[in-house]
Amino acid sequence: MPEATINTGTYKLFPSPRNRERTIFEHEVFVPHAYTLIDPPSYDPKGKWSLFAAHRLADRKNGQLVTYELEADAVRFKQRFVAD
């Protein structure tokens, strides 16, 4: 059985069951809204992505972390994302 959490030193992560990849990609976007529905495919990523419930260790803030293989996908997400 895979680990339920991943500790990166910056975040304690809880993988989304919708992830096709359990990889933490290079381009990260922290969303400080733990209960907002985030659907990464709806942002038209060209590369791979992964989504995690996240606890940011530095300030103990809960939210979500979206990681992208391609920088352009992370930029597109930041531009389009609007919290509920």
Rank of each mutant, 00 (worst) to 15 (best):
66 V>Q: 02
37 L>N: 14
2 P>S: 06
70 L>T: 08
13 L>W: 03
41 P>S: 11
8 T>V: 02
63 G>Q: 02
2 P>E: 10
50 S>M: 05
70 L>S: 08
40 P>F: 07
21 E>T: 15
44 D>Y: 15
55 H>P: 00
17 P>N: 06
57 L>I: 06
6 I>M: 14
40 P>I: 09
20 R>H: 13
27 H>S: 05
5 T>H: 08
66 V>I: 05
79 Q>W: 05
39 D>K: 03
5 T>P: 00
17 P>M: 03
9 G>Y: 07
13 L>Y: 08
57 L>G: 00
12 K>D: 12
36 T>H: 10
24 I>R: 03
5 T>F: 15
30 F>P: 06
83 A>I: 01
18 R>Y: 05
61 K>D: 10
42 S>L: 11
12 K>A: 03
80 R>S: 14
58 A>M: 04
45 P>Y: 12
25 F>R: 09
54 A>Y: 09
47 G>S: 09
16 S>M: 02
53 A>S: 14
55 H>F: 06
20 R>V: 15
7 N>H: 06
49 W>K: 04
40 P>G: 02
60 R>W: 09
21 E>P: 03
18 R>M: 00
31 V>M: 05
71 E>W: 09
69 E>D: 03
38 I>D: 07
77 F>V: 07
22 R>S: 13
30 F>K: 01
49 W>I: 09
9 G>Q: 00
9 G>A: 00
9 G>F: 10
10 T>V: 07
46 K>L: 14
50 S>E: 06
38 I>R: 05
66 V>P: 00
6 I>V: 13
81 F>V: 08
18 R>Q: 04
12 K>H: 14
82 V>S: 14
16 S>L: 11
12 K>N: 12
21 E>I: 13
42 S>T: 13
58 A>S: 15
46 K>W: 09
79 Q>D: 11
23 T>R: 15
76 R>K: 14
26 E>H: 05
78 K>S: 13
5 T>E: 14
34 A>W: 02
39 D>E: 11
48 K>P: 12
21 E>W: 13
30 F>G: 00
77 F>P: 02
67 T>D: 02
15 P>W: 11
6 I>W: 04
74 A>T: 01
31 V>Y: 06
49 W>F: 15
23 T>C: 11
82 V>P: 08
18 R>F: 01
43 Y>H: 06
25 F>W: 06
27 H>A: 04
68 Y>E: 03
53 A>W: 03
57 L>R: 00
10 T>L: 07
72 A>N: 14
69 E>C: 07
37 L>C: 03
28 E>G: 06
42 S>M: 11
48 K>M: 13
79 Q>A: 11
5 T>I: 15
34 A>Q: 13
69 E>Y: 04
84 D>H: 04
18 R>K: 10
34 A>I: 07
26 E>S: 06
12 K>S: 07
80 R>N: 12
44 D>Q: 15
48 K>V: 04
8 T>Y: 08
1 M>Y: 10
52 F>Q: 04
